[in-house]
Each structure stands twice: as structure tokens, then as C-alpha cells.
Simulated assay, not measured.
Amino acid sequence: MKIDGTSLPPVGGIQAKNRVVSIDKKAAVQGTDGVKVSDKAQFYQVLMQKVKDVPEVREERVREVSQQIKNGEFKIDAGTIARSLLFGKE
């Protein structure tokens, strides 16, 4: 007897259908579906929202520095800039 792939019924389809039925039965027993979010995830969501609320450009700081430049009072500390570039923010 020779068996080739065309004479066998597709077993995968039957197995997949059985899995869906078992999932539906579990959902019916539990009542409703739900999602629980951990405290850390909730905290992360709050922080992300606060970050989104912060403007990208600090207008007040820009005005302050612009005024210092106009008045000739703006001083650049090359050492601080070099340290920041090499080692990150202080």
C-alpha cells in the first residue's frame, strides 16, 4: 500500500477547530474575558503621560538665554561642555 499526501484528510484543520472549541468552553466557564495590568505598568503609563505633557521646547528658558545673549551676559563654560560630551550629563 502506498500512502501519499493527497489521500490523507487535513488533520491540522480538525486540531485547530478542537482548540477553538476548548478555548470557547473555558471562556464560558469563567464568565468574561479580562485583562489585568500590573502596578508597575500602571505607574509606567502615568509617567509616560506626564512626559508627553512636558513641552519639547522650554520657552521660558529660551527667552532667558536669548536675553542673556542680547545683553552680552551669556557665558559658555567649555570645560563643562567637554565633560558632558565625554562623560554624559553631570
Rank of each mutant, 00 (worst) to 15 (best):
D77W: 02
V20M: 08
K26S: 13
I14K: 12
M48Q: 11
S22P: 05
V11R: 14
Q15S: 10
S7Q: 03
N71F: 01
F87G: 03
K40A: 05
I23Y: 10
M1H: 15
S7W: 01
G34L: 08
Q42A: 12
A78N: 06
N18K: 15
I69A: 09
R63A: 12
G31R: 01
Q45D: 10
V54T: 08
N71V: 00
K36W: 09
Q49W: 04
K25P: 00
I81T: 03
K75A: 01
Q30D: 07
K25I: 07
P55S: 12
T6S: 02
Y44M: 14
D53W: 01
T6L: 01
E56N: 12
R61C: 01
R83S: 12
K52N: 08
K70W: 04
G72E: 00
G13L: 04
F74L: 10
D33A: 13
S38H: 02
L85H: 13
N71Y: 00
K17F: 06
A27D: 07
N71M: 03
A16R: 10
R61M: 05
L86S: 08
V37N: 00
I23A: 14
I69C: 03
V21D: 11
K26F: 08
A78V: 11
D39S: 08
F74D: 03
K36Q: 07
S38T: 07
Q15N: 09
A27V: 13
A78P: 00
A78Q: 09
E56R: 15
V35Q: 10
K52F: 03
K25S: 10
N18Y: 11
T80A: 10
K2Y: 07
M1R: 15
D4Y: 08
V65N: 12
T80C: 01
D4H: 09
N71E: 09
V11A: 11
P9D: 09
V35R: 14
K36I: 11
I76H: 02
G5Y: 15
V65I: 14
T80P: 00
K25Q: 13
D33K: 14
I76R: 05
S38W: 02
Q49F: 03
G31A: 00
V37E: 00
D53I: 05
D77E: 07
K40F: 02
V62Y: 00
A16Y: 04
N18Q: 15
M48F: 09
R58M: 02
F87V: 05
M48C: 09
F87C: 02
Y44V: 14
K26M: 13
E64N: 10
N71R: 09
T80G: 09
D77Y: 02
R61T: 07
G72K: 04
I3S: 13
S84L: 06
G72M: 01
Q15R: 14
K89T: 11
K2V: 15
L47N: 14
V65K: 13
A82P: 02
V46Y: 07
D39H: 04
D39K: 13
R83P: 02
I14F: 13
F43N: 08
K89L: 13
G13N: 04
E59G: 05
R63Y: 12
K25Y: 07
G12F: 07
E90G: 08
V37G: 00
E56W: 08
D4M: 05
R83V: 05
A27W: 11
S38Y: 03
E60C: 02
G12E: 08
I76K: 05
P10W: 14
V35D: 06
I14M: 14
K40D: 06
E64L: 11
A27K: 11
K89V: 13
V65E: 06
M1D: 12
L47K: 15
Q45M: 11
M48H: 08
S38M: 01
